[in-house]
Amino acid sequence: MGIELKNITKRFGDTLALNNINLNFDQPKIYGLLGNNGAGKTTMLNIISNRIFPDSGEVIVDDEQALDNDCALNKIFMLSEKNLYPDGMKVERAFEEAANFYQNFQMDQALEMAKQFGLKTRKKINTLSTGYTSIFKLIVALNVNTPYLLLDEPVLGLDAQHRDLFYKLLLEKYANNPQTIIISTHLIAEVASLIEHTIIIREGKILRDMPSEELLSGGYTISGPASLVNEYIIGKQVITQNTLGGLKTACIAGQPDPVPLPENLELGKLNLQDYFIQLMNKEDSDHE
């Protein structure tokens, strides 16, 4: 059970958006799909939800071909940056539409969430601000109760308070009704604590596909005065290093030495955002 991507390749003219991608999204888990702009995240989600078609390869949902398969597609709800609702449709009408297609849609909860976020349900969707359009889509996504939820830039335009509320509601929902959630976002630091499994994509290729814990346990950070850090990192596999004034932070692959650290040096855990930045920097330098 789960979503399986088999040898997915997609080109847009000269650009190879996805290059022979093989991935599994198991049930239930929260996945983080991370990548720079143009990495192929949205293309991948659009292919899973049948909005676009791959040049080659196939998508399998719960052992069924997803291509033009209503049963498979109805198990997936995708929240995309683009608004696919008709211009004149009101929020309350869109909730009714969702209830029409998804039997498990929780109308009461959707209306309650709308209240929490301060979303006016009598307003037309196309008159909502960017933030409230995202909120509207989030509320639908959180209440359709499909086994698979694809969230592409879910918090686009949301203020900090609403973003916090969304993450809380998402976790609450996940605790009550575990499902497979794929979050594609650039706000890595904010979702890092939610993500159980990280997929990092770059130029249509998967760079990392592993549990977040495993990913981050593969390294550590060391920070302190630049001279001491420089001394410490000799002979170690440095993923990246940043210097600010006289202070330096280095991310190092592997485990720290079991010997006591020199004074003024501080050992830290690798965080997802740092790891991502470092990995991208490394890829950039490898390309050069």
Partner: peptide, 16 residues
Amino acid sequence: REDARLLIQHGVGRTT
């Protein structure tokens, strides 16, 4: 166009 967008949003395939 309008229907195709709304229906794909709600998990309905091309044939349907």
